[in-house]
Amino acid sequence: MLLTAFALHAAVAQQQCRTLDARLPVALRGWKVSGSGLDTGHTVTLNAGRDKALRTSVTIRRAGTYGIALDQAGWIDVAPARGKPLESVAHGHGPECSTIRKIVRYKLRPGTYRVDVTRLKAARARLMLVRY
């Protein structure tokens, strides 16, 4: 019941926005720019498989807290190239009046990580790496 009320509130809030993605915080301004590869400064649109899941990788150059932003509901896991998924340090929704549906944050050290996105609703997903 609470989730239904929250989803309804979010839908009403989106309808009240005159323009989506117009007032994004500095860290998320790349959400309006398309690029290739999961990185900061731009989004990447990837095709999900028949199972509504996708896998990509990301290379972290400086240690810090990073988020994976997603344009729809889904489950985001980040893991070292050879290892188990990391525990997230925070998760939430994107800013009001944005097309960012979810952001999951992780503390990451330099290296390459695999990013698994599952339980997607659409055949394509838009993602962005966000540094905090």
Score class of each variant (00 low, 15 high):
Pro80Tyr: 01
Ala13Val: 14
Gln72Thr: 10
Gly74Ala: 13
Arg18Gln: 11
Lys121Ile: 04
Ile60Arg: 01
Ser57Glu: 14
Thr56Gln: 09
Met1Ile: 15
Ala48His: 09
Gly67Asn: 10
Arg114Asn: 11
Tyr106Asn: 08
Leu120Gln: 07
Val89Asp: 07
Leu127Pro: 11
Cys97Leu: 01
Asp39Ala: 15
Ala7Ile: 13
Arg62Tyr: 09
Thr59Lys: 02
Ser34His: 11
Arg109Gly: 04
Ser34Met: 08
Lys121Phe: 07
Cys97Lys: 00
Ser98Asp: 12
Ser88Tyr: 05
Arg124Gly: 00
Lys102Leu: 13
Glu96Val: 11
Ile103Thr: 07
Leu120Ala: 04
Ala27Thr: 13
Thr112Asp: 12
Leu127His: 07
Val12Lys: 12
Arg126Tyr: 08
Val130Gln: 10
Ser98Glu: 07
Leu38Tyr: 01
Gln15Ser: 11
Ala63Gly: 07
Gly74Lys: 02
Leu8His: 12
Ala22Gly: 04
Ala69Ser: 12
His9Ala: 12
Leu8Gly: 08
Ser98Trp: 02
Arg124Trp: 01
Gly49Arg: 08
Arg61Lys: 14
Ile103Arg: 13
Asn47Ser: 13
Ile100Asp: 01
Tyr66Gln: 06
Leu127Glu: 03
Asp39Cys: 09
Gly64Ser: 10
Asp21Lys: 04
Phe6Lys: 14
Cys97His: 07
Arg62Phe: 11
His91Ala: 11
Ala125Ser: 08
Thr56Ile: 05
Leu120Phe: 10
Arg131Leu: 10
Val104His: 09
Gln15Lys: 13
Leu46Met: 06
Trp31Leu: 03
Tyr132Asn: 06
Gln14Asn: 15
Leu2Met: 10
Arg126Ser: 00
Leu108Thr: 03
Thr65Phe: 08
Ala90Arg: 11
Tyr66Cys: 12
Val117Cys: 06
Thr45Ser: 05
Ile103Val: 09
Leu24Ile: 01
Gly30Asp: 01
Tyr66Gly: 09
Arg61Phe: 02
Gln72Ala: 08
Arg109Cys: 04
Tyr132Ser: 11
Thr99Asp: 12
Ala7Trp: 15
Leu108Asn: 06
Val104Asn: 12
Ala7Ser: 13
Pro25Arg: 03
Ser36Asn: 13
Thr59Arg: 06
Val115Tyr: 06
Ala73Asp: 10
